[in-house]
Amino acid sequence: MNELLSIVLTIITAATPLLLASIGELVVERSGVLNLGVEGMMAVGAVCGFGAALMTGSPLVGVLAAIAAGVILSMLFGFLTLTMVSNQVATGLALTLLGLGLAGMIGEGFVGQPGVKLEKISIPGLTGIPFIGPVLFGQDLLVYVSLIIVAATSYVLFRTKTGLIIRAVGDSHQSAHALGYSVIGVRYLCVMFGGACSGLAGGYLSLVYTPQWVENMTAGRGWIALALVVFASWLPWRLAIGAYLFGTITILGFSLQAVGIGIPSQLLSSLPYVVTILALVVISGNRALTRANTPACLGQPFVPDR
């Protein structure tokens, strides 16, 4: 039981940063913008969150700083791709490089310093229940936040007018423009939302996952988040399934290794990718649905004709 509990808790921590980063990117892509800079925004979020928490002693301030840092970086991306109409793929890649470099520079003084950890919550009476307590009522705040964001995103995208506008902008920016919606304005907001989520994901790494700052600590998670969005065919709940599946297979792989049954570790390391892709391909077997959910204007620049 204890072993199972520790596995479940580890899975939740492993899945949360992926979910946070990818849900933001999902909204960005739904509005027709492809921002490949997730990794860079995560890195800057991680270092700013860590630094702010260290200086103020408050992990919550750290969380806010991480969000703010992600937003600022994403606004730079927005300015370049939306206002200056630069190529989104190239700008996104540049944003990753910039973010990683910038984070390394900002974080120079933080290397080798223990951080401030965002503690798990504890609800008297509930957290104490065996197994269910620690899993459902004893997580850190951001785990709940990530799930709330997924639910809210799903609701807003598919049940509200706002969502309809976002999807319209992503599917046919010319039509949305003709209807009088500000394509650029909507995209700016979505890009900033994506930045906030990426920054938060980075903050999760440096404040909860491993409370420390070291260069390259994001270790490619931004890229996994990007891939998850595509394989979840831009649907929030599938994204949650994908992120948790990825975390589960990773942790189960470690458990199998530690048991010592001699499955090659290289195979186990690649399993999360293989299984997640397979599972998401299978659940998106309905190709008409997948096509309907793919933002038709993804990656295309929009220049309003005057």
């Binding site: 520790s6 492993a14 996952y209 491993t210 600590m217 290794q257 530690a258 010592g260 570790s265």
Partner: peptide, 27 residues
């Protein structure tokens, strides 16, 4: 000893996960 290969020199997240799993298994 229980051994876990993380196939990376440097991935704080993975290393933390591996440590949690190993402690969970009695190390």
């Amino acid at each position: 000893i229980k051994i876990v290969w993380v196939n990376s020199w440097y991935d704080p997240g993975k290393e933390a996960d591996a440590a949690k799993v190993l402690f969970g298994q009695g190390a």
